[in-house]
Design a protein around this nucleic acid. Structure first.
Lengths: 340, 340
DNA sequence: TTTTAACTTGACACCGGTGTCACCACATGA
DNA sequence: TCATGTGGTGACACCGGTGTCAAGTTAAAA
C-alpha cells in the first residue's frame, strides 16, 4: 500500500529516474523502445507522479487562482466552470478566492492569500480586474495575471472582455423599436467598470433615437434584488412614469417585477422590464426576463487558456480578446402601451 | 527579487533551518528568545514558506477536495463558502470538483482526478455521498473523506447531515394547519437520498393528519425548473386538482408558479406553492416562496472542520453531526380556499 | 553535590521529482 | 581517416522544507 514513486518505476523499467521524468514530460530524445518500457511500467505499477514534488523541483505550482466577488451565484458558477475546464485539461488545479470587495482589509488579506499559495497565475474578475493597487502588486511580484471584463483603459495587461456598452446599446435600441420612449435605467454597482459601460450604451441609444435623457429616469442600483425594488418604487411613483425599465442586472429586474406586481401593473403589457446577465432566475421568474446573455463560461475558458500560455512563456496571439453579448427576448418585454 | 527561502531566514536569524521550521509549525520547546529573533527575521525578510516544499517534506498536501454535482448554483455557492472558510482558517486550500453525476465515465475520471492531486481529504456532497463504489474506492486508497447529507444507512463513515424527512414533515404539517387536504408533492431527482427522505416526511405528515395519500398527487421531478413545469401541468389539469403543491426544491416550485400563472391561478389564494432549499430565486420570484432553509454553509463548515481533524489524526467528538432545517414562510402560501 | 530529566538546538538525511552536464554510440561531412 | 554533430541516457546536485537523532545546557530531584 506504499506510494509508488519515480524510483520504483525506474527500477521496474530498468532505466534512470531522469528518463522516467523525460517520458513524464514528453521531452524529445527518448527512444520509442524506452518510452514503451516506461509506459508499461507506469501501467503495471499504477504510478501517479507526486504533484508537490514536481512543483518543488520545477519551480511551478500548477495552481491557478481565481479571484471574484460573489454578487451572483450564476456568474460565479459560469466563471468557475469555464476556467476549470481549461485548467484541468492542462494539468492545473484551480484555487478559488471569493472575496468581499468592500472589505477594508481586502487587499492585504487577498495579497497574503495569493502569495502564500504560490500560484502560477491569477484570473481576475470584476471588480478586481480594475483594482489598480492589486494589479500593481501582482506586477511588482511578477505574478502573471489576466483580467476578465475590466476597463481596458486602466491597464494594458492581457484581458478578456465583452462589450457591455454595445450590448446595453442594443437592448435600448430593441426597446425603442418596440415604441418605448419613456425608458428608465437602473445602474449597477459603481465599483464595477461594466456599470459605467452599460450606462454609456443606454445614453447613446437614447440620444441617437432623439429621446431626451431624463435624470429622474436614471437610478443608482447595487446589483441586488432589494436595490432593484427601491429604484422601481422611485421610478413607478413618478407622475409621468416610464413604460420600460432596463435594469443593469437580472436580480434588480426581478425586484422591479415584484414592485410592479404589487402595484397591479401587468408585465409586459403595462410595463416592460428587462435585465442583464441571463441569470438562471431570469428564466425562473414569471414573466421570464428579456435580458442580455454574456458568454461568461467561454470568456473564463479563454482567460485560463491565455493565462496558461503566459505562464508557460508562450506568445499570446492577441493581448485582448473580445466576446460578443447576445440579446435574449423573453416574456417581460412588449410594445409600448398606446397613449390614452 | 529572488524568493526568500528558509535558508535565508536561518542565516538572517543566526539559527538553523530546523529551528525556523519549528517556529513555523508552532512546535513546543523553542525558547522565547529565539522565537522572537525568528519572527523578526520573518518580518524583515517578508518570508513566506513554500507550500509545495512543505507538502513534499511532510507528506501532506494541505489540499482538500470538494466534490459536487451542480444542479443548483446557490447550493454550490453555500457549500463552497462554508468549506472554504474552515479550510483557509486551517491553512488548507480547497480544490473543487464539479462533476456531472450522470456521466458514464464519472467514476473513472473522478477517481483519477482525486488521486492525482494528492489530496489530504475529500468532502463529498449529494449525490456523491451515497455512491458506494466511490466510498469504497476512497476507503481502499485510505483517503480520508466526509459525507455531507448522505444516507446514513449505507456507510458508517463520518457524516454531516440534516433531517430532510423531518423538514418535509414540518412543511406538510404547516400546509395541513392552513386547512389544505389536497396536497400534492413533487419528488426530487431519484439519485439523491434527500429526495426519498422528503417523500417520507410528506407521507408521514399526511397519514398522521388522516389524509389519504393519492398516487396522482405524487409526481416525479428532477430538481429542474422544466420538470417542475411538467409536473405542475399534470397536477393542475386533473379533475380534482390539489390546492397546495409542495415541490422538493425551489426551482421546481418556480416552474409551478409559472404554469399556474399561465392558467390564471392566483397564488397563493387559488393555489399554495412551496419549495425546498431557500435558493436565492425563492426570494426573487413573485410571489416569493415559502420554503425550507437548510444550513448548508454551516454544514459545509462543520464537514471541513471534521475532515481536517480526521486528517490530523485528532479524535472526532461525534461521528455524525445533525443540523436542523427551518421553515421559512413567505408569500406563496395561504389558507386553503373555501369549497364552493 | 551528583544524578536525572527536561528543554533547546543543529547536523544531516530525506521527501519525489527536475535541471545540468557529461558521456557514449553512431551518423555526417571534410 | 578524423573532426563534428546529434540522439539517447544516467549521475548527481538541487528545489525548500520536515523528521530523526544526537548533543549541549539548564533545571529539578536525590
Amino acid at each position: 500500500m506504499k506510494k509508488i514513486t519515480i524510483n520504483d518505476v525506474a527500477k521496474h523499467a530498468g532505466v534512470s529516474k531522469k528518463t522516467i521524468s523525460r517520458v513524464l514530460n514528453n521531452e524529445a530524445n527518448v527512444s520509442p523502445d524506452t518510452k514503451l518500457k516506461v509506459h508499461s511500467a507506469f501501467d503495471s505499477l499504477g504510478y501517479r507522479p507526486n504533484p508537490q514534488a514536481r512543483a518543488l523541483a520545477s519551480n511551478q505550482s500548477f495552481l491557478i487562482g481565481l479571484v471574484y466577488s460573489s454578487p451572483s451565484n450564476s456568474f460565479v458558477s459560469k466563471i468557475q466552470s469555464g476556467a476549470l475546464k481549461r485548467c484541468k485539461a492542462d494539468g492545473y488545479n484551480l484555487i478559488i478566492y471569493p472575496e468581499d470587495h468592500e472589505n477594508d482589509y481586502l487587499l492585504a488579506n487577498l495579497e497574503r492569500g495569493l502569495i502564500s499559495a504560490n500560484l502560477d497565475g491569477i484570473i481576475l474578475t470584476p471588480p478586481f480586474s480594475d483594482m489598480k493597487p492589486l494589479l500593481d502588486f501582482l506586477s511588482e511580484k511578477k505574478i502573471p495575471f489576466i483580467r476578465v471584463g475590466g476597463d481596458l483603459s486602466i491597464n494594458a495587461s492581457p484581458s478578456v472582455y465583452s462589450n457591455d456598452a454595445e450590448a446595453s446599446y442594443e437592448m435600448c435600441r430593441y426597446l425603442v423599436s418596440l415604441g418605448h420612449t419613456k425608458i428608465a435605467f437602473i445602474m449597477g454597482h459603481p465599483d464595477h467598470a461594466a456599470s459605467h459601460q452599460r450606462l454609456i450604451g443606454y445614453k447613446k441609444a437614447l440620444s441617437e433615437a432623439g429621446i431626451e435623457i431624463r435624470d429622474t429616469f436614471i437610478q443608482q442600483g447595487y446589483f441586488t434584488f432589494e436595490s432593484g425594488e427601491d429604484c422601481a418604487r422611485r421610478l413607478l411613483s413618478q407622475e409621468d412614469r416610464p413604460t420600460a425599465i432596463f435594469a443593469s442586472n437580472d436580480y434588480m429586474a426581478a425586484g422591479i417585477i415584484k414592485v410592479a406586481s404589487q402595484k397591479n401593473l401587468f408585465i409586459p403589457n403595462d410595463l416592460t422590464v428587462t435585465g442583464f446577465d441571463n441569470a438562471p432566475a431570469s428564466r425562473y421568474i414569471w414573466p421570464s426576463l428579456t435580458t442580455i446573455k454574456q458568454p461568461i463560461t467561454d470568456m473564463a475558458f479563454e482567460a485560463a487558456r491565455m493565462l496558461i500560455r503566459i505562464v508557460r512563456n508562450k506568445p499570446l496571439e492577441n493581448n485582448i480578446v473580445t466576446f460578443k453579448d447576445e440579446l435574449i427576448v423573453r416574456e417581460s418585454s412588449a410594445p409600448a402601451p398606446k397613449v390614452s
